[in-house]
């Protein structure tokens, strides 16, 4: 009986994982082998949906995968580096001032998604009524069609900046826990501010930093609502990552079979990235 107790405690969690991850994943895999459409009925078509994808019969899929890599790399870099620098800055400020700036930087996260997206749409509106174009107009410069010219950059910025507050909050707590003596000792030894960050702080906050990297990677891979609202994934698929393309195929065009095959690729990609990060970031705990 005593041996069973840990399993009893872990059972609710296993049930939740089964209900909200394993069963949907298995169902998605099953649907990916069918030609299911709007009626939610589908005939078995084997691996046809996957061959359509991997043989590049779908002329957009290569572009979509490239977009996914660019988007992920860009947004992740902004979120992690931005969050780390802000955490370091606010932790260095300390006290009420540090808390105030953390609060200010937390505002984007507290903003409702529609409002956040609208702010970006307004800022980069290509007509004279867009914020940036208004500013340009005031200084005598012509406006630009920002969203159609730089769609990927804009969605990277909108999503990357939104990730900063969470990263900053976790990392500023982690930096705050570094014993003061260590920082002080390194200063006495002549380390510069930059060296302290690179050689002292980052190694000491490696675990939360790694967790945030993996967490944000999965988040950027699977979320697309801001992209949908700001650029719609366009123009001509220029800002469509895999998650948005999957959604469009499955729920806009109601190609549930093909959409599920794309979703399976997304699931496998996420797992590969997690395992890859475990290796790269050295996250294997010593026994």
């Amino acid at each position: 009986m005593k041996k069973l107790i840990p399993y009893i405690f872990i059972l609710p969690l296993i049930l939740l994982i089964l209900l909200f991850y394993i069963i949907p994943a298995v169902s998605t895999f099953y649907i990916s082998l069918t030609d299911m459409g709007r009626s939610l009925k589908g005939d078995f078509v084997g691996l046809k949906n996957f061959t359509r994808m991997f043989s590049l019969e779908d002329p957009v899929i290569g572009r979509v995968l490239l977009n996914t890599i660019f988007y992920l790399a860009g947004a992740l870099a902004i979120t992690i580096i931005g969050g780390l620098l802000l955490a370091n800055a606010t932790a260095s400020l300390g006290g009420a001032m540090g808390a105030f700036f953390r609060l200010v930087w937390f505002l984007p996260r507290a903003t409702p998604p529609v409002v956040w997206a609208f702010l970006w749409i307004w800022a980069f509106n290509p007509t004279q009524f867009g914020l940036l174009n208004m500013i340009l107009s005031r200084i005598g410069l012509p406006g630009r069609g920002w969203i159609s010219l730089y769609p990927m950059l804009i969605v990277i910025l909108a999503n990357g900046i939104l990730g900063i507050p969470y990263t900053m909050t976790i990392l500023s707590a982690a930096i705050g826990n570094i014993p003061y003596e260590i920082i002080e000792a390194s200063r006495i030894d002549g380390a510069s501010g930059w060296q302290i960050i690179i050689k002292i702080k980052i190694p000491l906050i490696w675990w939360p930093l790694s967790f945030l990297t993996i967490w944000h990677t999965l988040s950027f891979l699977t979320t697309f609502q801001y992209i949908m609202m700001i650029t719609g994934g366009g123009p001509f698929y220029a800002s469509t990552p895999l998650a948005l393309y999957t959604y469009n195929k499955a729920f806009q065009n109601m190609e549930l079979g093909y959409g599920s095959a794309l979703a399976m690729v997304l699931i496998v990609l996420s797992m590969v990235i997690i395992l890859g990060f475990r290796q790269i970031l050295g996250l294997k705990r010593e026994a």
Partner: peptide
Amino acid sequence: PPDMGSWDWSV
């Protein structure tokens, strides 16, 4: 306009 796809409906 070359960028009509990114215009807001109200505009």
